[in-house]
Design a protein around this nucleic acid. Sequence first.
DNA 1: CAAGCGTGGTA
DNA 2: TTACCAAGCTT
Length: 334
Amino acid sequence: MPASAAKQLLDHYDRHARALPWRSPPGSPPPDPYFVWLSEVMLQQTTVATVTPRFRRLIERWPTIDALAAAPDEEVLMEWAGLGYYARARNLIACAREVAARGGFPPSESELRKLPGLGAYTAAAVAAIAFGARAVVIDTNVARVIARYRGIKQTLQESRDDIRKHADAMTPTDRPGDFAQAMMDLGATICRPRRPACSICPLSADCLALASGAPEEFPATKLKRERPHRHGLAWWIERDGAIWLVRRPARGMLGGMAALPGPEWGDDVPTVQRQASISHGFTHFTLELHIARRAEPVGEGWWQPIDHLAEAGLPTLYAKAAGTMLERKEVLAA
DNA sequence: CAAGCGTGGTA
DNA sequence: TTACCAAGCTT
């Protein structure tokens, strides 16, 4: 990429940067590292639209990393409910406590990379955006922009090292944080996976994929495996206006989250008499969750008042299941 | 290095 | 409706 391309991109960013609650305006001093880190972790595989209101809630409740570090695990997991990829929340807690104990975030990419939940992307992003370091920030947006600009048609898995070389070559010493965000904005709003808006792209003049006539064919995508179908059973145990909830094991699916009790999921349909069933799609399988009534509590847990079920911090799967059961109840009562 | 790990929006 | 995909990390 010609050196002028980075400048073109920054000029475009100065005029078109999206205003986001964790972002400071182009060219202005960097935001609080806590805000940068928190937003970056929330944004891992999660859209800006989903993250924005949840970010506001989190920083309102815990305005500093010391406040977050002092919060009980369950409170943080409850605030994360519905956001998915719950290992992020567990890492978030561990990272907050480590950073609070050492008195703040380390400013270097290599030290940031050692913190729980910070991989290659997030460490580089925090170093560049919060500390102004010249870190090479590569997410799927950046990788796609580069693949198109340089006309690299291989899959991103195949071209990973090549993409990194190009990204390193184009990253400026001045304003590396704004540059990273400009690349990501470009990928999210103009150089989109499908139907890229090349006519308004600041890099279109030198884009090899556009010159080829079919920019959306860059980079190639590999076919996904078919998702298997699994079955699960959840117990609906109701007593005196409350539901019996349990906490899932810390590791694995929905690790550490509140849940309806039930055995591990498997390939076979449960044989018990069920009240309802719901379907839920996960990343690598779909689940049909069968719901059955039961009188006695199972396992370690607590009674959650139905009036306050929304505050239990149920992940979406169990929130759906509970919603289905409560809806049936209302229909029967009517 | 590929698989495991959530959820909601879009076409 | 199915399929794809989003500011990835961990093992």
